[in-house]
Every structure is written in C-alpha cells, then in structure tokens.
Design a protein around this nucleic acid. Structure first.
Lengths: 228, 228
DNA sequence: CTAATGTTATAAAGATTTTATAAAATAATG
DNA sequence: CATTATTTTATAAAATCTTTATAACATTAG
C-alpha cells in the first residue's frame, strides 16, 4: 500500500521496460513516458515522488526538460544517461538534478541511489519517524499511527500530510499546495484542497471541527502546527 | 562571506592535498583528517556543512565511520573511494551516504556533486524575521508575534503591515498604499485605509489611541516607525 | 473665540468571499 | 467486476471586506 511513485522519461523501449520491471518489483509505482512532451505532461498532471530522466530524448534536450521541471517540481530528479562527459554531468547537477547515473548502470546501485534520494527529501534520517502529541508518521514505512491505531490514508492524503509536516509552522498558500500535490495546472482548484484537508482532519484531528494541527489561514491557505 | 565548511577524511596524503587545494580555491573552508579517529573527533568538535569520506582508512572501516557519523550528523556525507564494486556502493548509500564517487574522479564533477548536496540541505531554516521593540514578524512562516503572543491578522492586514515594514521610516501616501494593496482602481478609497490602519493599530499598538508605530501624516498618509 | 471646513477614527451593518461538509459522479485499481 | 480513490457539485456556515454613519480632531477665517 501507498507506494512511492516514480516517473521514467526515456525514449529507449528496452530501457523503459527494464526500469519499469525492476522498479515495480521493488515496490514502486511506475509511470513511463517516451518523449519529453509526454513526460512533462505526466509530471504536471500527476506529480511523482521522483523522476528518472534520460538526457537523450527525441523531441527536446533533456537539459531543457530538467530546467522546465525545476520551475515547479521540487522532489528528486535523477539523470540516467549514456553521456559520460563531465560537461553534461556538471550542467545537469547545476540545473537541479539530484544525481547522475551513466548507462549502462548497475541495478542495485540505481535502486540504492533512488532510496537515498527519496530519503533526502523526507530528510530526517535513516529511519525517520515524525512524532506528534497524538499521532505519528513513519516516513520509511509510510505508516501513520494515531494513539497506537494505524490510520489508513489514501496516497493523496499521505502526500498532503507529508508536505505539511515538512513545512511545519509555515503558512502554505493554496497555490503552493496545489502545485506540489496535484501539479502546476491545478493551481486554481482550491476546492480539491478543501475536500482533502477536510478528510485529513477527520482522520488525524481529535476534534475535526476545532483542528489543532491543520489550521486554516483564511484567504491564504493552511498551516500545520505540531501542537506542543 | 560565510563559506561552507567541508571536512575531508582520507588517508592518502596526495589526495588530501589535491582536495584541499581544489576546494579551497572554490571558496570552501576545509579541514582534513588522515584517520577515522581524527575525522570523527573533528566532526564532533566542529561540525562541518559536508563531509568527504574515504572508505579505505587505516584504523577503521569507512562503512563503520559512516554509520557512527550518521547517529548524529544529518548534513551531507559524500563517499570518495577507489572501490568500484556494487556491494560497497549500495551499502554506503543505504547507510546514509548522500553520494558515492569513484577515484580517480573528475574535479568538476566532484564540485558539482558537492554543490548539489549542499543545495539540498541549506535551504532549510533560513527564515527572515523583522524584530521590533514590542512585536515581530516572521515572513517565511507568516507569523506576527506581540510580546510572545501570536497575533491573528487577516490577509489584507498582513499585506498592509508588510508594506509598512518594507518602507520603514518613509511617509507613504494614501494613493500609494491603496494602489499597492487594493490595486490602482482603488486609489481614491481612503476610507478603506482608515478602517484597516485602525484595525492594525488595535492589534499591534500597545495604546491604539497613541500609536508609536503607525503614525498619521495628516493630509498625506501614514508612516511606519520601528520605535527604537 | 466661534463657526466652518477638511481630515481622521471607530463602530457596526450589509455584502461578498472564502471555507467546510456531505454526497453524487467519475475514474482508477487490483 | 468490485472496490477504492478522486473529482465534481451543491449548499450551509464562517470569515473577511466594503460601505455607511457618526464622532473626534485640527486648522483656519471671520
């Protein structure tokens, strides 16, 4: 349940298949795109937890795709490329890539680098658990517990909660939350947020009518506070 | 200036020198340690912003050093090793290393990977706060505090206060304030301003009748002064 | 000094926007 | 196909913003 989503943007049929099978067998949900255009569209409409990006795409330079993604996408992007020259590597890393792997790569290493990158965004540690007065979140196991009872969150609810916890104390605008969870094209769908904040409150707040964790900032957005 | 500090733990004299010179010439502050023991001591006494760790140390396995460091050290650790086998790489990454470079490496790539690793951690927790004698504003969290009590401002009130603070000391005309907050078509609605200045004063001034921060400039507008 | 005029302050009523919630319709998943 | 999740719609409630009314204050002319 609640697997991390990975988007693969690569034009080689064989490579896509290999990656898809490998990742799927290691408990990731996988989406694939053979072109820059499709990749960016998929990312925008359904932001994944991590993107594997090939530099050699048929319709657009991978470097450009990287730049465009980084205008709004904040989670890890790993480059997977046959290019083994320093110029490409440095350029990609400086444009916001989190890692750069050269094809052909070792499967185990790829998986380890993916785990490492995912860990760094939730960044609290190797076995990270966020604890609050009345509930806790185990980021590595993706499990939310309230008073020792496990709570079932849908993947959207879980992403939203994670985003809130990562920005504890800060007021987050509707715009920001929508872009991060649903993608840039959903920036005006405030109603989505209301529905999901409501569902989250129902699940994690003792009294959903008087929330102590997810506070509404009228006209602005929401703020997560740990409470204590 | 504020350069990032990097700790190098490597037993090869030549490698240490090379890294030290390279990093120093790229505006990093560098400390070096030739052994695991010295490295961990240095890290503990003077935590750097990033650690470059060689796996082949004379006194202790690099993997063990990594594990021990990760018990408390949360910033990036980059492995630099001659070992090019998958087992070592996967083990290091899963033990909390942020990256793994194989010697000999390309200098430009190393620097780019260091920049990348630093980028992913440094943006956490740089918040700008404006402090005044009796109240303060945290712009990143959007929190206004008065004598340690949090104050609730509506979004218009907050915008107005922000605008005042940004132009501290200057007399701001009605026209300017109205245009900035409500837009150019509201330039004549001075009454709006009176209402909102009144509400702001009630919330941030000790004595709203004798304001010390938001001063009326009759016939002109208002002036925000820090007061001390 | 007093009245007249222009400016500012404050409370409160009315209008609008924003938010919460349930529930139905649609889509995705296994 | 059955189940679960997401999107969409509808409506009630809450919060905020706008507008009005009135009072207070200051300045200047007579």
């Amino acid at each position: 349940m609640n697997r991390s989503e990975i988007l693969i943007i690569d034009d080689e049929e064989q490579m896509r298949k290999l990656l898809e099978i490998t990742l799927h067998s290691h408990d990731f949900n996988v989406r694939v795109a053979p072109t820059a255009k499709e990749g960016m569209l998929l990312a925008a409409n359904h932001p994944p937890d991590l993107i594997l990006l090939d530099l050699g795409l048929p319709d657009e330079s991978g470097h450009d795709v990287l730049k465009k993604l980084r205008e709004w996408y904040t989670k890890p992007i790993l480059i997977v490329s046959v290019q083994n020259n320093e110029e490409d590597i440095v350029k990609a890393l400086d444009n916001g890539a989190n890692d750069y792997l050269i094809k052909p790569f070792r499967t185990g290493e790829l998986l380890a680098r993916i785990r490492s990158a995912l860990r760094n965004t939730t960044f609290i540690g190797l076995n990270s658990i966020a604890e609050f007065k009345d509930f806790q979140v185990d980021f590595t196991a993706r499990i939310v517990t309230k008073r020792n009872e496990q709570i079932k969150l849908t993947s959207t609810e879980y992403s939203l909660l994670t985003l809130f916890i990562q920005n504890e104390g800060k007021a987050l605008t509707h715009n920001f939350l929508l872009k991060q969870i649903w993608g840039p094209s959903f920036a005006n769908e405030s109603q989505y947020l209301r529905v999901y904040v409501g569902q989250l409150r129902k699940k994690i707040e003792d009294n959903p009518n008087k929330p102590i964790h997810i506070i509404t900032e009228s006209g602005v957005g929401y703020r997560f506070v740990s409470g204590e």
